[in-house]
Computed example of a mutant assay.
Amino acid sequence: MSIAWNYLDKRSGTVQAIKDFSSMKFIIDSTDSAVKNVYDGMSGVGSPNMDGMPRSHDPKAGEGRIVSGIDEIDVLKERYRQAVEYMAWFVPAWEQLTDDEQFLLTTFYEHEEYSMVSPVDIICQTYSIERSTAYNRKNKALNHLMTLLFGKR
């Protein structure tokens, strides 16, 4: 199934794809170490509980830990596969944008909830333009990216 199906509504899907970029990059960068940590947890011996409380003996606890680890690794690998598919879909379109278009979209969508200053104000100050012009440029850049991702509107 194509990654584009996750972003079915083209305009809001384009915005969500911009917002998802940093998460997908993190998944790709951290999956190897996460899988290694799960493998390490699967092969270790359970430590005794030293609180004085009696324990019930589960003769299949080791098997359960291995099965649980395998399930977790499957989830991590599927997440990784989806992130790689996303990058193969999104990055070529992103790279075709101009530097100004990338700046506009990054400023407006990736940093909107973290900034004390409105993203529109940052854009207005950077380009010395009015708010309406900033919105128009952002919309034009968003439409360009949407066309690159999904084809004709």
Rank of each mutant, 00 (worst) to 15 (best):
K10A: 06
R11G: 00
Q16R: 12
A17M: 11
A17W: 14
I18G: 02
I18R: 01
K19L: 07
D20V: 07
S22P: 08
S23L: 14
S23G: 13
S23W: 09
M24E: 14
M24I: 07
I28T: 10
I28K: 15
D29K: 10
D29Y: 04
D32A: 14
S33M: 04
S33Y: 01
V35R: 12
V35E: 07
K36F: 10
N37W: 02
D40P: 03
G41S: 13
M42T: 00
M42K: 10
G44Y: 01
G44W: 00
V45F: 06
G46Y: 04
G46F: 07
P48E: 12
N49R: 15
M50W: 11
D51V: 06
G52E: 02
M53E: 10
P54N: 06
P54W: 02
P54A: 06
P54M: 08
R55V: 08
R55C: 00
H57T: 02
D58L: 10
P59K: 07
K60P: 00
A61T: 02
A61S: 08
R65S: 04
I66V: 11
V67S: 05
V67K: 13
V67A: 08
S68H: 10
S68I: 01
G69R: 10
D71E: 12
V75W: 03
R79P: 02
Y80D: 06
R81V: 00
Q82F: 07
A83W: 14
A83E: 08
A83N: 09
E85M: 14
E85V: 05
Y86L: 04
M87H: 09
A88D: 15
W89H: 03
W89K: 02
F90L: 05
V91Y: 13
V91N: 05
V91Q: 11
V91F: 09
P92A: 06
A93N: 04
A93L: 05
A93W: 01
A93H: 05
W94G: 00
W94V: 10
W94N: 03
Q96P: 03
L97C: 11
T98L: 03
T98F: 04
D100V: 08
D100Q: 12
D100S: 15
E101P: 14
E101L: 04
Q102G: 07
Q102P: 05
F103I: 02
F103P: 09
F103C: 06
F103K: 11
L104S: 12
L105Y: 12
T106N: 07
T106E: 05
F108L: 10
E110K: 15
E110T: 09
E110M: 14
E110W: 02
E113W: 10
M116C: 06
V117L: 08
V117T: 10
V117S: 04
P119D: 00
P119A: 00
D121R: 10
D121V: 13
D121Y: 13
I122T: 09
I122V: 13
I122A: 08
I123Y: 00
I123N: 00
I123W: 01
Y127I: 01
Y127F: 15
Y127E: 05
S128T: 14
E130K: 13
E130L: 07
R131A: 08
R131L: 02
S132L: 01
A134F: 01
A134R: 02
A134Q: 02
R137C: 08
K138Q: 09
N139Y: 06
A141R: 01
N143R: 06
H144R: 12
H144F: 01
L145Y: 05
L145I: 06
L145W: 07
L145F: 05
